[in-house]
Write a protein that binds this DNA or RNA. Structure first.
Length: 271
RNA sequence: GGGUCUCGUCGG
């Protein structure tokens, strides 16, 4: 699993072959881990091949299906993901919270928001209660489709249901507000996150700086950049790219170069 | 008893 996460999937495969050759018994978890490796590397064909192999050995389980559905969904193959979802039920596996979350998330990314809401309803009919990840995934899809009024309604609704928003909820709303061009909302959300304590993180600052810069509010972007450092956050390459993009867009190329120098001085490699 | 699955950030 560690090798697979670390872009060393082929080393993981070698280890797997070695295990097989030494006659070590391989259980379903080993296969799931490999499947996940293929899926995160975008090697879907090999993932499908391994999955077929697993079926011969009758090692697939709910986690296997979830991993596979996630892989299909995140590579834009929503149709195949839904097919795998149907198949798992036929095989007698009961979809769990993760299964539904993977599907809702895939729908949002694929601009199939209404399909996502259908699954949201279906899970509840089947007695699976949505959690904060489900709502965050829906908010992502709503934000991507530019319907922020609907996003704020769902945000209120989730709280009414007793779901506690996380920092991901807030940054997801920020992104949506950015898509809709609502920079002031982003700043309001940042203030709310600060009040919560412990909600503001590097990603939140990166989003704020990016959106302000793209909206031409480059002075504010630079101010937030200073503020994040004052708050003890170290800008990363994404932060620097975002400020520099905004500065360059505003024609402040010299200013952008200053940040570039600062970045290198901070030991951050340009990408 | 433990190990595997799901949500948010830039540029290209």
């Amino acid at each position: 699993d560690a090798l697979g996460q670390d872009k060393k999937l082929d080393d993981a495969l070698a280890l797997y072959q070695q295990m097989k050759a030494s006659g070590i018994a391989l259980d379903g978890v080993v296969f799931n881990v490999l499947l996940k490796g293929f899926v995160t590397a975008g090697r879907v064909a090999e993932a499908m091949q391994l999955f077929e192999e697993m079926k011969q050995n009758s090692t697939p389980g709910v986690v296997t299906y979830n991993t596979l559905i996630n892989g299909l969904g995140r590579t834009g193959r929503l149709g195949e993901a839904l097919q795998a979802f149907a198949e798992m039920s036929e095989m007698g596996f009961t979809p769990n919270l993760v299964t539904y979350n993977v599907l809702v998330s895939a729908c949002g990314k694929a601009n199939m928001l209404e399909q996502g809401f259908k699954i949201f309803e279906q899970m509840q009919k089947n007695g699976v209660a949505p959690d904060v990840i489900t709502y965050n995934a829906l908010l992502f899809g709503i934000g991507k489709s530019g319907q922020m009024d609907r996003a704020y309604k769902l945000f209120e609704e989730m709280k009414k249901q007793g779901i506690v928003p996380t920092k991901v909820t807030y940054t997801t709303l920020m992104q949506g507000a950015g898509h809709a061009g609502h920079c002031d909302q982003i700043l309001t959300l940042l203030e709310e996150m600060k009040k919560k304590g412990g909600f503001v993180d590097l990603i939140a600052y990166n989003i704020v700086i990016d959106k302000l810069g793209k909206a031409g509010r480059v002075k504010e972007a630079c101010d937030i950049f200073s503020q994040m450092k004052a708050d003890g956050f170290a800008p990363d390459v994404i932060t620097y790219n975002a400020v520099m993009y905004g500065l360059r867009k505003a024609g402040k190329t010299n200013e952008a170069y200053k940040y570039c120098g600062e970045m290198e001085a901070a030991g951050i490699r340009p990408n």
